[in-house]
Nucleic acid binder design. Sequence first.
DNA 1: GGATGTGAACGACTTCACAGCG
DNA 2: CGCTGTGAAGTCGTTCACATCC
Lengths: 226, 226
Amino acid sequence: MRGDSASTISEARLSRPSAGRLSLYLRHLEALIGEGGAKVSSVQLGQALGVSDAQVRKDLATLGNLGHPGVGYRPQELIGAIRQALGLNREWSVALVGVGNLARALLRYRGFQQQGFRIVALFDADPAKVGQCIDGLEIHSPDQMSSVIARTGAELGLLAVPSETAQTVAEGLVAARIRGILNFAPAVLRLPESVKLVSVDLAAQLEQLAFLVQMVGNESRALNTR
Amino acid sequence: MRGDSASTISEARLSRPSAGRLSLYLRHLEALIGEGGAKVSSVQLGQALGVSDAQVRKDLATLGNLGHPGVGYRPQELIGAIRQALGLNREWSVALVGVGNLARALLRYRGFQQQGFRIVALFDADPAKVGQCIDGLEIHSPDQMSSVIARTGAELGLLAVPSETAQTVAEGLVAARIRGILNFAPAVLRLPESVKLVSVDLAAQLEQLAFLVQMVGNESRALNTR
DNA sequence: GGATGTGAACGACTTCACAGCG
DNA sequence: CGCTGTGAAGTCGTTCACATCC
């Protein structure tokens, strides 16, 4: 890197897959800290996470010059830098729509609050559920979305509703000025560019697994032809 | 492709991302069928799913010559071919380990049984849960894994246990001759090559979303410099 | 020596663009 | 015509290999 006369972070662009791996590094590093590991090398990290050492270096290099040649990386520093790069150096308030079993699982999921995500609002269209409380949070009607989200300051939304209503509910969240949606409904959502979307399609993942498993069978058959 | 003198299916290799999209096409096509759509074009499919038309054609071309130039594709045919390619033209028996909220959500999840996945066995290490029944399925102790999995013929495993025990439990599933694992624990699992693994890391997905949302802010700041 | 950072080579996936067919 | 199938070009991400620094 040439023009680093000043020590300002040059804010190199961070690619999507790289960002995904940073999450993994982060989790692993936080576990390491507990064991007081003072240094980590790209080889160690890579082996622990199933990633090539070159890949690790490339990923970490985007964070700035954190590596100490001949030594490795300092976990503490890395953690801070990764948090910053991923936007985890602050709290994120999250709204959860669709209070079914999945929602309950998400509510209790430790991984979220551990990284500063806080679920601050619940919504469900079922009148029987509206007004009830879970973990100290009242379930609101979707009508209230705009006001409740404004009041609680939620910026992210978890969408755990049936696929039929997913698009409509998502639009409600957009109208309520949510900035990003994590969608669990098996539906393809259409959102304005400015609202970010990540989808987790459980059925598709399981189908992917079936495909891979089935391929193994085909593989061995294919090998016979050699 | 050279030696296609015979009309035998040349079984073109199906790439991982392509297989992922096939799941989406399949779901959309099954919805279309209900509405009696007789023909679909790559453009229609693409727009519905947020994929380029060229991509759709490339993906579907791997299934054999199903397209009718000047006309489009017949949904029925496509569905059959996709099912076959993904290995969904049969039932898959599935074992579910770790009976918490997530497991309950997965058990009731329609998308699974709709594509022929049947959960046939439950396991949980908590003695208080062992012996209980959910949806007509008894919860077994992990000790019983080998025998129960052999008896029920489960080939796939859903792993919904805490990350600390994930590796151990996964090894148990491998020992019980499971062929693929869908892992929900936020841990990196080490499995033999022959056992396929797909991981769904909820925390990482949410972090990814935070990253994207945060990027939007940085983007607009970056645009100012222009 | 040991480990980082990084251009260059490589590979995988996507888009382009168009020939060919109904 | 309209729409598919597909080589060619392009883009993105990963791996290699090595100069560099402690």
